[in-house]
Amino acid sequence: MLEISKVSKLFNPGTLDEKTALVNINLAMKPGDFITVIGSNGAGKSTLMNIISGVMKPDIGEVKIDGRNISALPEYRRSKWIGRVFQDPMAGTAPRMSIEENLAMAYKRGQQRGFSFSTNRSRRTIFREQLSRLGIGLENRLSAKVGMLSGGERQALSLLMATFTKPQILLLDEHTAALDPARAELITALTESLVREMNLTTLMVTHNMEQAIRLGNRLIMMDKGKIILEVNEDRKKDLTVERLLGEFEQISGKKMADDRVVLG
């Protein structure tokens, strides 16, 4: 499904601030894989997301979806296959536009946008149906401006918008990190059910160790731009937070340094 081979990325090449963000990353995802990504500050997790979505281009290496090399495609052309939810709840929706208008934009993901009306009766029916899956009453507020919603509501909407056209790849970039614990829990539960129902191939960066272990069928740990640990399906079942931290210290020779890390 998704294949990343020999991807490397350097920031600020040739300056004093030169920094290797990714070093020779290889990762293959099968359809339906749900990989959680953890790692210390500056490990390259977000860079990896940006490389897959096309916000950044790798210096060397390839990104393939369904065997097709997409390394050269700009972000807006890749979004046909890739759905993404950002950490910032404000980032995934347009605040001055209504809920239904936001959904209409997501509905046309990757398609030619022409002169047909964005919101008609049949689309509204679909939108209501989809919104009701969130279970937070947004289906009755189709014409409300998204800027009026709370952070949690906006993130739930972002998640729905990223998934409901069933993208080949779903990227979740610490999408619960900016929310309070109760809202984060709600979004996590929604993520789980949406991913399972649609069998989405998902890559999720998280700071929550417990979440990283509980969700998904695979786990990878990153440090200094490298994947230092891969836990596959069988081993992930009996993984614990202690064991994971122990592994990290053993491999990298230092303590997990992340000011936002949540042990669960």
């Binding site: 807006y76 979004s79 347009a94 046309k108 918008m161």
Partner: peptide, 8 residues
């Protein structure tokens, strides 16, 4: 946001 939904 709109770029992530495929608009140039």
């Amino acid at each position: 946001m709109i770029r992530s939904f495929g608009t140039n």
